[in-house]
Each structure stands twice: as structure tokens, then as C-alpha cells.
Computed example of a mutant assay.
Amino acid sequence: MLYVVGIGPGGLDMMTYQAREAIEAAEVIVGYKTYTHLVKELVGDKPVIKTGMCKEIERCQTALELAQSGKTVAIISSGDSGVYGMAGLILEMVTKQKWDVEVKVIPGMTASIAAGSVLGAPLMHDFCHISLSDLLTPWELIEKRIINAAEADFVICFYNPRSRGREGHLKRAFELMAPFKNPNTPVGIVKEAGRRKEEKWIMPFEEMDFELVDMRTLVVVGNQSTYFDQGMMITPRGYSL
């Protein structure tokens, strides 16, 4: 059995019961080293196989080999394993490479949901996720998605917004959205949502501070109805008050 587990944004109190049960049931834990550290209290003395960044295929290969050998394995992702996590890659490998492994995908709270609760209620109407990482997706396609989402007036949640290798991607995203956004559109920034060092900022679109943002941050850009009041970012659903 291979459990593909979303462990939530970081804190154990934001992990689902299903995720905890899967980790407890597993004989071996496989994951990115930062994520294995987040669940060390649940793992005890079980074997933990850790890998670094950009080792996703190797990580999944190891988990599948262990599961096929008869072990009960949990491969973990932060947030939800089906949102930029390991679920898709595991299932691709199982279906295309014909592994004889039973797989169960365990959901978890993705970063946008955790960040949304910190900011208030910015995701009350239609919203989308866009990753600004161009490691696996051509930047030209990412730009097209940004423009289309902004023109359609989605609330937009940006994952992987800024890193040392992608200093200018978020700024470029804001340039692409600018023709479709009121300068006063609220923008929420949440760093380390659900973790001990959680921080948040809310500011107008035209005053966006890109220096606050890193890879541990989620950026939420409101739609034309989103407003800021009493420290909260709110997107009305459309109820008559």
C-alpha cells in the first residue's frame, strides 16, 4: 500500500485525521527533507527516506519500489498532495509504468485555504491557483494564464511566487494583471501560513511590496469586488445585505 499524503501547510493542528492515520499506518515515510521534519513528532522511530529539491521522480520511484516490495509506505507533500504535490506524479508513474501498487491519495489543506483564513475571506467567489515556477511549465504559458485569469476577474492565488532564481516573475505577473485591476484592489501576502512564524500583510495592488515575498509565501490578488476593512480582505459572494 502506498499512501500519498497531504500534510497541510505545516502545523500538526492543521493536518487531517486521515493524514495522521496514514502516517501512523505506514512502515516507511518518504518525503522532501523539510516536510519530513514537519511530521517528525508523528513518525517516531520509523525509517524516513529524505530527498532534496528537484528529486521528485527519485522520491516517487523509491516509494513505489518499497510499496511493491510489500511495505506500507507514506509519501508526503505539504498542503494537498494533489495540488502541486506528489499525487499526480505517483499516479502517472503507476498508470504509465504499470506498477503493481495500491495507491490511496489522502487530502490535505492547501496553502491558499490556510492563507485565506489568515487574511479573512478572500476566496468567497471564483478563484484560481497559478504557480510562477517555470521549472516544468513554459513561462509563455504561465503569462497567458495570468492574463486570462485577470481578464476573467478571478481572485488569483500565486504559488511559488519568488525565489533567487525567479526574482522578477511576480513583478512581471503584476505588470500583466495591471490593465485589468483597479489600483486599489487588495492584495494579501501570507508567509509560512499555518506555521509558527506566520506573517501577513494586506496592501493595494499599486503599492505591492515584492520584497516581502519568498518561496514560503502565498500571494492572493483580489477581484473587482474584493475590499479591505478592519484588517481583513473580503470578497463578497453576492448576498443582498
Score class of each variant (00 low, 15 high):
V101T: 13
T185M: 02
G116W: 05
V118E: 12
I113F: 15
M86E: 01
V83C: 11
N182T: 01
F154H: 01
V190C: 03
S78T: 13
I189M: 06
V94F: 12
A173D: 03
R166A: 04
V105Q: 11
A111R: 09
G88P: 15
E140L: 01
G188V: 06
R164L: 08
I113Y: 00
I75C: 01
A87N: 15
D153L: 12
M124I: 02
I130D: 08
K144L: 05
L176G: 03
K104C: 14
I90H: 11
M93V: 10
F158T: 10
A149Q: 11
E151I: 09
D134S: 11
G188P: 02
F180S: 04
I189L: 07
L176A: 03
V155A: 07
F127M: 13
V187M: 06
L136C: 07
L141E: 14
L91K: 12
S163E: 05
S112T: 11
G108A: 09
F154Q: 02
V103W: 10
G188K: 08
G188H: 07
S78Y: 09
H125I: 01
E140W: 00
N160K: 11
K191A: 11
G85E: 05
A115V: 10
G116K: 06
I156P: 00
P186W: 00
A114D: 14
C128A: 13
L132R: 08
A87M: 15
E192F: 05
S163R: 02
S77R: 08
R162A: 01
Y84G: 12
I146Y: 01
E92T: 12
S131F: 13
L136G: 04
K181T: 03
V83W: 07
G168K: 09
E175G: 00
G116L: 12
H125D: 12
F127W: 14
S81C: 06
H125Y: 05
G120T: 10
L89D: 04
R195Q: 13
G194H: 09
C157V: 11
T137H: 14
T110R: 01
A178T: 02
T95N: 15
A150W: 02
E167F: 00
A150G: 14
A121E: 10
V103K: 01
H169E: 12
T110I: 04
E102T: 15
A87R: 10
P183L: 10
I130M: 07
K96N: 12
S77G: 07
G188S: 11
A193P: 08
G88C: 11
D153T: 12
N160D: 13
E143L: 01
G79K: 03
A193G: 14
E151G: 05
R166E: 04
P107H: 04
R145C: 04
F154Y: 13
Q97P: 05
I106M: 14
A115C: 13
R164K: 13
V190G: 05
V105F: 14
D153S: 15
H125G: 00
Q97L: 15
P138G: 04
A149N: 13
M177D: 05
P161I: 08
F158K: 03
K171F: 02
G108M: 10
L170F: 03
I146W: 05
A173V: 02
G194S: 12
P122A: 04
E175Q: 05
H129V: 10
S131N: 13
P186E: 07
